[in-house]
Computed example of a mutant assay.
Amino acid sequence: MALPFQNVYIHRKVAEASSKPCMICFRPSTSVLITSCQKDFFYICPSHLNDRGFATAVVDEAAEAEKRKKEEMDKELEKLKQEFEEKQKRKEEKKKDKDKDKDKKEKEKAKVKDEEADKLKVEETEKAKTEQAVEAASFCEYNLHRNFFNVRQQKYREKQVAKRNMERLKNPLSFPAVPKGDPV
């Protein structure tokens, strides 16, 4: 018999309002494991995901290498931005020394530029934090232990059988017809 779905579950988070009981301990949980084909899903506590008797994480080496490379590039980009800002400040200082008459206007402009730079830094750091949070809670893949996977498959088959039975009950042609002849 063909498997209804593969033993590859993706970890996702849901809103607090959508939390449901964990499959194992029945405590409210916002973590969900769902198959890639979205045929099966269940709520699970994050602590159970770390249990080797329940599931093992699938490690994607290529994705990890990309993350490391991206982190290195982000660090280099931050260094370059800082160097550029320092150069800009030096240029502004030189201009201030040359133009004492325009000193007040430049101070105002420098303040505005510094405020804008600070806003950009704050926005970039917030953006980086949200990206890191998304990456940290990214859709990690897990393989369930053989016994738990068999239970999930069995529940899926039971749901399919119940669904077929309900369809049969709704169809009046599936019931036997009333006898038409005289009783003997």
Results as ranks from 00 to 15, higher is better:
residue 148 F to G: 00
residue 36 S to G: 02
residue 89 K to F: 14
residue 108 E to C: 00
residue 171 N to R: 09
residue 50 N to Y: 01
residue 53 G to E: 08
residue 112 V to D: 07
residue 76 E to C: 04
residue 130 T to S: 07
residue 59 V to K: 13
residue 63 A to M: 13
residue 142 Y to K: 04
residue 100 K to E: 00
residue 175 F to N: 05
residue 52 R to V: 12
residue 115 E to R: 09
residue 66 E to G: 02
residue 167 E to Q: 11
residue 75 K to Q: 11
residue 73 M to K: 09
residue 109 K to S: 11
residue 61 E to V: 01
residue 66 E to F: 00
residue 141 E to P: 00
residue 137 A to P: 01
residue 103 D to C: 12
residue 78 E to T: 01
residue 163 K to P: 01
residue 90 R to V: 10
residue 176 P to F: 09
residue 84 F to R: 12
residue 90 R to S: 10
residue 60 D to A: 02
residue 49 L to P: 14
residue 67 K to F: 11
residue 134 V to T: 13
residue 75 K to M: 09
residue 138 S to I: 01
residue 119 K to A: 05
residue 41 F to N: 06
residue 94 K to Q: 11
residue 82 Q to Y: 12
residue 126 E to D: 08
residue 146 R to S: 09
residue 78 E to Q: 06
residue 166 M to F: 13
residue 146 R to T: 04
residue 137 A to C: 08
residue 85 E to C: 08
residue 119 K to D: 07
residue 42 F to Q: 01
residue 46 P to C: 06
residue 153 Q to H: 12
residue 97 D to A: 10
residue 74 D to Y: 11
residue 68 R to Y: 12
residue 154 Q to W: 03
residue 173 L to Q: 10
residue 178 V to M: 10
residue 65 A to N: 11
residue 79 K to G: 04
residue 88 Q to F: 07
residue 47 S to L: 13
residue 175 F to R: 14
residue 116 E to L: 07
residue 64 E to H: 06
residue 32 V to Q: 06
residue 82 Q to M: 08
residue 31 S to T: 14
residue 112 V to M: 04
residue 44 I to L: 05
residue 114 D to V: 02
residue 64 E to M: 14
residue 93 E to I: 04
residue 105 K to A: 12
residue 110 A to V: 03
residue 178 V to K: 15
residue 151 V to C: 13
residue 138 S to C: 12
residue 165 N to H: 09
residue 120 L to R: 08
residue 133 A to S: 07
residue 114 D to L: 06
residue 144 L to Y: 02
residue 31 S to Q: 12
residue 81 K to C: 07
residue 50 N to P: 14
residue 37 C to T: 15
residue 34 I to G: 05
residue 144 L to F: 01
residue 139 F to N: 08
residue 175 F to T: 04
residue 94 K to P: 03
residue 65 A to F: 05
residue 34 I to T: 11
residue 106 E to N: 15
residue 150 N to H: 05
residue 43 Y to H: 13
